[in-house]
Computed example of a mutant assay.
Amino acid sequence: MAAGSTGAMFKPGEWYKRLTKPSWTPPDWLFPVAWTVLYAAMVAAAYRMAKSGDPLAQPALAFWAAQIALNAVWSPVFFGARRVGAALVVLSGLWLAVAATVVLSFRVDLLSGFLLLPYLVWASYAGALNAWIWRNNPGAKDL
C-alpha cells in the first residue's frame, strides 16, 4: 500500500500533459487500472512464495522487496521532481529487480511466476515510454 500511495501522491498533472509523448502512450485512465491489477498480482505472488517453504523464496522475496522500493521511488522522481532521466535510472533498476523476481519466482512457484509476468511486460513498456519522453523532451523539468 505504501509503494502504491506514491503514485497517488505524485500524479501526472498539467506538467505531464505538456510533455511530448509517443502515439503509443496509454490513456491516463489506464494507469490506475493497470497498477491495481499489477499490485494485486504482486501481493498474491509474494504471499505464495513466502508460504512455499522453498529455499529460493528468500532471494526471490529480497528482489521483490527491492522492486517494490524502487517502484515507490519512481513516481516522486518522475512526477514530483520532474527528473525524467533520473527516473529512467530508477526504472532500469526496477526492471532488473522485477526480472530477477520473475526468474526466481518461477523456480519457487509456477503460478507466482505467471502472476508476475504482466508486471515485467508493464515495466518494459514503462521503460520504453520513460526513455522516449527523456529523449524527446530535453527541457522537461522546466515545462
Rank of each mutant, 00 (worst) to 15 (best):
K11P: 01
K11V: 05
P12Y: 02
E14P: 12
Y16P: 10
T20E: 15
S23M: 10
W24V: 11
W24T: 13
T25E: 15
P26K: 02
W29M: 08
L30C: 10
F31Q: 00
F31E: 01
W35G: 06
W35H: 08
T36A: 14
T36W: 11
V37R: 06
L38G: 08
M42Q: 08
A44G: 06
A44Y: 09
A44S: 14
A44K: 12
A46M: 05
A46D: 07
Y47W: 13
Y47L: 13
A50V: 05
K51T: 12
G53M: 09
P55D: 05
P55R: 01
P55M: 04
P55T: 01
L56M: 14
A57L: 04
Q58G: 07
Q58F: 11
Q58S: 14
A62Q: 11
F63H: 12
A65F: 13
A65K: 10
Q67E: 13
I68R: 01
I68D: 00
A69N: 00
L70F: 14
V73C: 12
V73M: 13
W74C: 05
W74R: 00
S75Q: 10
S75K: 03
P76S: 10
F78C: 03
R82W: 14
R83C: 09
V84T: 14
V84H: 01
V84L: 10
G85V: 08
A87Y: 03
L88Q: 09
V89A: 14
V90K: 00
V90A: 07
L91G: 07
G93F: 10
L94F: 10
W95P: 10
L96W: 09
A100M: 14
T101F: 05
V103N: 04
V103S: 07
S105E: 03
F106M: 01
F106R: 02
F106T: 05
R107L: 15
S112P: 08
P118E: 05
P118N: 04
P118T: 09
Y119D: 03
V121C: 11
V121P: 13
A123K: 00
A123R: 03
G127L: 06
A128Y: 12
